[in-house]
Design a protein around this nucleic acid. Sequence first.
DNA 1: CTAAATAAAGATATTAATATCCTTTTATCT
DNA 2: AGATAAAAGGATATTAATATCTTTATTTAG
Lengths: 143, 143
Amino acid sequence: MFSKSCEYAIKIMAFIAFKQAKSKELVGLDLISEAIDSPRAFTAKILQQLTKARLLKSTRGRTGGFFLDKSQNINLADIVKAIDGPKLFEDCLLGFDKCQDDNPCVLHYQLKKERNTLKNKLLSTDIYTIAKRVNRQKAYFKE
Amino acid sequence: MFSKSCEYAIKIMAFIAFKQAKSKELVGLDLISEAIDSPRAFTAKILQQLTKARLLKSTRGRTGGFFLDKSQNINLADIVKAIDGPKLFEDCLLGFDKCQDDNPCVLHYQLKKERNTLKNKLLSTDIYTIAKRVNRQKAYFKE
DNA sequence: CTAAATAAAGATATTAATATCCTTTTATCT
DNA sequence: AGATAAAAGGATATTAATATCTTTATTTAG
């Protein structure tokens, strides 16, 4: 469903939200990749992508790290779009360039409702909600 | 959502069902790859996979080709499982080896219902239903 | 001012998915 | 029997995703 990069990105964003709910300190790469059990160098690349996409902010230097702009309410769809692009939401499931109601592929109408439900769920689930669940130990970043 | 191979596989299966509703003749590779607009050699490989998975039957030789066992009612989930494996239905969305109700990843409960709905839709949509829609020109194999 | 710690950037390596090409096997037609 | 046409199988090529390594830029602590 999601690329590996996107899986890491979701954990990254939720972890930073979780951390920042407890303390205002910036969150660094080492802490992140340890907490979500992801390869360090690859995680750094994803952090760069998220920063470029403006879902995260960062500062360099000795006390540098990553942090969230609290005025921004980020949902799962934002993250998926930033990393995997819009294909999960917009692209034809069977690869048509233009799969539309008047020229539908054989899955277009079959899965239209289900795709929409999924999309809406991702749009309506924000990272702070997820962070709260982790805080209550109802969900985990790693096994 | 689906791999490219799986996209082709769904079209292949639906096309053969569509063809066989009209005539009992076997359906050959050339006809298939032309009809669904897929690369010929790659399509041959997917036909092999489908045949090995027993979703299709084939005969070699001069009048050879592919055909469906009419006593078998094949749904989309069968095809997805045969080509992409069970990951869409069973695997953790965030890569846990064992993502369970008592050790859930941060998406486990969030998307449980939506994944189930999708799974059930794929289980309940069979290739003959799709073939009929194509026959009524309500859906197409290529643009 | 210098050393240390951090993110950013660029280069490279590895692996998996997609795709093609060539040969072999099988069945049919003449 | 021999030529032909089809699927099956094996080898290779190409591309994209995943991952690592090295260098550079930035900031701060001492």
